[in-house]
Amino acid sequence: MSLALVTMSHSPLLEFNDPPAEVKAEVDAAFAQARSFVQDYDPTLVVAFAPDHYNGFFHDLMPPFCIGFEALGVGDYGTAEGPLDVPAELAERLAQHVIDRDLDVAISRRMEIDHGAVQPLEILLGGIDTVPTVPVFVNGVAKPFTSMRRVRLLGEAVGSFLATLDERVLVIGSGGLSHDPPVPQWATADAPARKLLLDGRHPTAAARDARQQRVIEAGRAFAAGTATMRDLNPEWDRALMKTLASGDLTAIDTMDPEKMAADAGNSAHEVRTWVAAFAALGAAGRYAVDTRYYRPIREYIAGFGVMTARTV
Rank of each mutant, 00 (worst) to 15 (best):
A277G: 13
A279E: 03
A309E: 04
E258A: 15
N266W: 12
F304D: 02
V275T: 12
V289S: 10
R310Q: 11
F304K: 01
Y300W: 15
A280L: 09
S267D: 15
F304Q: 00
G285D: 07
L281A: 11
Y287G: 05
A288Y: 03
A284H: 11
V306M: 12
T308L: 09
G303L: 01
R295D: 02
L281I: 11
V289K: 09
A264K: 10
T273G: 02
R292H: 10
Y300S: 02
A288R: 15
A302V: 11
D256N: 15
A283R: 13
Y294T: 01
A309D: 03
G305D: 05
G285P: 00
L281F: 10
T273V: 11
A264Q: 06
V271R: 00
Y293E: 09
G305L: 01
S267W: 01
N266R: 10
E270Q: 11
R310I: 03
M307N: 14
D290E: 14
Y287V: 07
Y287I: 02
P257A: 14
R298W: 07
D256G: 05
A302Q: 11
F304C: 07
H269R: 10
A268Q: 13
P257L: 12
Y294V: 03
F304N: 02
K259H: 02
A302E: 08
A302W: 03
F278K: 08
M255V: 13
G265V: 10
R292Y: 05
G282Y: 06
N266D: 09
A280G: 14
A262W: 06
A277E: 08
E299H: 15
Y287A: 09
V312I: 11
A264H: 05
G265F: 05
V275W: 02
A309Q: 07
R295E: 07
Y293W: 10
Y294Q: 07
F278C: 09
R272E: 06
F304I: 05
D256P: 03
T311W: 00
A261L: 07
G303A: 09
A268I: 04
F304Y: 15
A268F: 00
T308F: 08
E258L: 12
F278H: 14
S267F: 00
Y287F: 15
A268Y: 05
M260P: 00
I297S: 01
R272Q: 05
A280I: 06
R292L: 14
T273P: 01
L281H: 08
G305A: 15
T273K: 07
W274F: 10
S267A: 14
A276T: 08
D263Y: 06
K259R: 14
A264V: 10
N266C: 04
Y300Q: 07
P257S: 09
P296K: 00
M260I: 15
E299A: 13
K259N: 11
V312T: 13
M307P: 08
R286H: 14
H269Y: 02
Y294D: 01
T308N: 06
D256W: 04
A280Y: 04
L281S: 05
V275E: 01
N266Q: 14
D290F: 03
G305W: 00
D256R: 09
W274L: 13
T273D: 07
V306S: 06
V312E: 13
T273H: 04
A261W: 05
F304E: 02
V271E: 03
H269C: 06
V289G: 06
T308M: 11
R298M: 06
V312Y: 01
M260T: 15
Y287W: 06
P296F: 04
A284C: 10
S267L: 14
I297G: 01
T291D: 12
E299K: 01
M255Y: 11
M307E: 09
